[in-house]
Design a protein around this nucleic acid. Structure first.
Lengths: 115, 115
DNA sequence: CTGGATCCAAAAAGATACTG
DNA sequence: CAGTATCTTTTTGGATCCAG
C-alpha cells in the first residue's frame, strides 16, 4: 500500500501518513519494534500473533521502503536479520501517540494499561 | 471497516482508532467537516473529489455509527441533510494533528500550506 | 531461520442506473 | 437532493509449499 513513489498526489499530510501505516498489522509491527528496539523476523512473528510470514515480510518491505524501519542482515548460518525503527519511524510512533490515546478513550473503555 | 460492535478485540488504542478511520476517504471527510463545520451530502461530494456516492454514503454511515459524525435530516422538499462532527469527532481530528504533521514533514516535502 | 512464489478468499472501492 | 441497488474490478490478506 505504500511503496514510496506513491502514485497518487496526496491531498494532505494525513492521508500520506495513512498510506504508510494503512496495513492491517503495520501499527502493531511499529509498536513491537518500539517496545523491543530491535527484533528478528521470527521474534516479530511472535510479537504480532496471527500474522502470516508472507504478510509480515510484505509489510516489513514496505516499511523499509518508506524509511520507517531499518533492515540489517547478518551473513551467518543460520541467517539472522534484525529490524529496527529508523529516526523517522520513531517520530511516526510519537505522532501516533495522541491517536492511540483517543482510541483507548473513545473506542475502548477506560485505559487498563498504557499502549 | 468500523461498524461499532467491532468483532476483533483490539490489541491497543491505535488499531482501534485505525479501524475507525481506516477507509480510503475517511480522514478527508473528517477534514472537510472540520473545516466547514457542517456539510450537506452533495457539498461533501464536492469537497472530496473522486469519491463516489456509494462510498461516501457508506463511510458516512460508518462514521455516524462510530459516533464521529452527527446526521441531521430535515424533512423538507427538496430533501436536506446536514452532517457535522460530534465532540468525539473533533477530538479525533485533534488527535490526527501530529500524524498529519509527520506526513507533511516526512512523506511530502516541506509544508506548502497547513492541513 | 528468513523469506520468496503461488493460488485463493475476502474486503473494499468504482461504475452506473434508479428511486423517494 | 440524497441516497439505494447491482455488478465489476481492484486491493489485501490468508494458506501453503518451497528454497537459500
Amino acid at each position: 500500500m505504500a511503496t514510496v513513489p506513491r502514485p497518487g498526489a496526496y491531498v494532505c499530510g494525513i492521508d500520506a501518513a495513512m498510506d504508510v501505516i494503512g496495513g492491517k498489522w503495520k501499527v502493531l509491527i511499529l509498536w513491537a519494534l518500539d517496545e523491543h528496539g530491535s527484533c528478528r523476523f521470527g521474534e516479530l512473528r511472535r510479537q504480532v500473533p496471527g500474522i502470516t510470514e508472507k504478510v509480515l515480510a510484505a509489510h516489513l518491505r514496505e516499511l523499509e521502503t518508506d524509511g520507517i524501519v531499518h533492515r540489517e542482515a547478518y551473513d551467518e548460518v543460520p541467517p539472522r536479520v534484525e529490524y529496527t525503527l529508523t529516526e523517522v519511524g520513531r517520530h511516526l510512533n510519537a505522532a501516533l501517540g495522541p491517536l492511540g490515546a483517543w482510541g483507548r478513550e473513545h473506542v475502548l473503555g477506560g485505559a487498563p494499561h498504557p499502549a
